[in-house]
Design a protein around this nucleic acid. Structure first.
Lengths: 229, 229
DNA sequence: TCATTTCCTGACCGTATGGTCAAGTCATAC
DNA sequence: GTATGACTTGACCATACGGTCAGGAAATGA
């Protein structure tokens, strides 16, 4: 009995694994194809080929193209939101914003396709995640705005409209993913190296922290340029 | 003879007018449809309907969908480039960058569709304007980088990597067009008012100029908030 | 008036695409 | 062994789309 239950559990687990593994494959391929071709330009056939599965198999796991797309966008949105964890329990703007920039730059590097899908979705009027914008994102934004306003009230940074600061953070960090191709072209056709990514993060952090008058924070990394003073 | 020539010139002008007017109508509709649906999602039928012309008429003026799209993208690129005129013969960073931000914010407001088409094109790997990126845009960028570097060398601003500053300027200003829908949603579902656009421009300008250590420029617009000093 | 050129458009065509389906395979359960 | 249920897939279908074309309207020129 115990053995039987064990087998049963294992089988069920293996079943689940098949499903999860295939969904993972499909979602990964879909993210790339949607990013590179847009929703309208993406084809189920191309996604299937990239996932190494027959097209009919995609429709076994995801009923329609829209369903698949929705899942891709939702997954991105989760990553997007979680990036703010480091933002939250920060003692001062310099620490919080610097770590938020770092997190979002990392996302731009690690999930460029996801970022593009998100950008595309929003640019097209958010047809599938409008409700998320109005509920989750709005709530999230209100929270950060309040936090930033608190910092301002405490005199830890200049009195800047928190919303526009957030927009600037989003825009600047996501630019390195969404416009990665342009940046790459201007970089001589080569993707940014580790060092260049670090320099980019540093530049963004420096400008913004100084821009909001918060660069004197204790956790602010000292500029370590080896130029002569 | 003179009269005949006059008529001839007028007729030719009217012909040209018909063509120009129809191309304008089509390009305007195409810009909007491409922006809202992406290249793959846009249909010639939809563009035709929006332009108020039969679909076959579109193909009379633009042989293929790609041709039409190319024209839209090229037109945007021109606007994009011309925005730098005010950047150029500026005496100091505060003046130059402030006016560049103002110009690009105006473009974001006046040509949101164009901005989205451009973003989409670049995000998809610039399939139709890769050569422009490698020639025109690269040259343009080199020029601005040199100008900024000169300002740095003259001690007019902090030593910041000019490229990342440019990226930040592009990202931040275009964000108000490309992610306009998101901003609108976070603004209670209403588009930014005149006052809000002004405030946005001011915020961006303030943060960046302070961020690069150039806010003390003589031509920098004084912050005329009616708050108590 | 008539020829010429430009412009206009309904009807049509080939293809590609999203989606369906029936007939499987395969592992498990009893 | 065989019933069960999840997974797989080649073949197929209806539709929508980009693009074509022939024939006509309208403007122009002589």
């Amino acid at each position: 009995m115990e053995g039987s239950a064990q087998v049963s559990r294992i089988s069920r687990a293996r079943r689940t694994d098949i499903r999860r593994e295939n969904e993972r494959l499909i979602l990964k391929a879909a993210e790339k194809v949607f990013a590179e071709a847009g929703f309208g330009g993406a084809t189920m056939q191309l996604i299937a080929d990239m996932a190494g599965l027959p097209k009919a198999n995609l429709h076994y796991y995801f009923a329609t193209k829209e369903d698949l797309y929705r899942r891709v966008v939702q997954d991105i949105f989760q990553i997007w939101l979680h990036a703010a964890d480091c933002f939250d329990n920060a003692p001062d703007p310099a620490t919080g914003i610097a770590s938020y920039i770092a997190a979002k730059m990392r996302i731009s590097r690690d999930h460029p396709f996801g970022s593009k899908v998100w950008a595309s979705e929003v640019m097209h009027g958010a047809p599938v995640i409008q409700d998320y914008l109005e509920t989750t994102l709005r709530a999230w934004t209100e929270g950060r705005v309040a936090a930033i306003q608190r910092w301002i009230d405490e005199g830890l940074m200049q009195p800047i409209d928190p919303r526009h600061l957030l927009y600037m953070l989003w825009a600047t960090t996501q630019h390195y993913a969404d416009f990665g191709h342009q940046i790459e072209t201007l970089n001589g056709g080569r993707p940014l190296s580790d060092r260049q990514w670090k320099a980019a993060t540093q530049s963004v952090t420096d400008i913004i922290l100084r821009g909001i008058g918060a660069s004197r924070g204790p956790a602010a990394p000292a500029p370590r340029k080896d130029q002569s003073p």
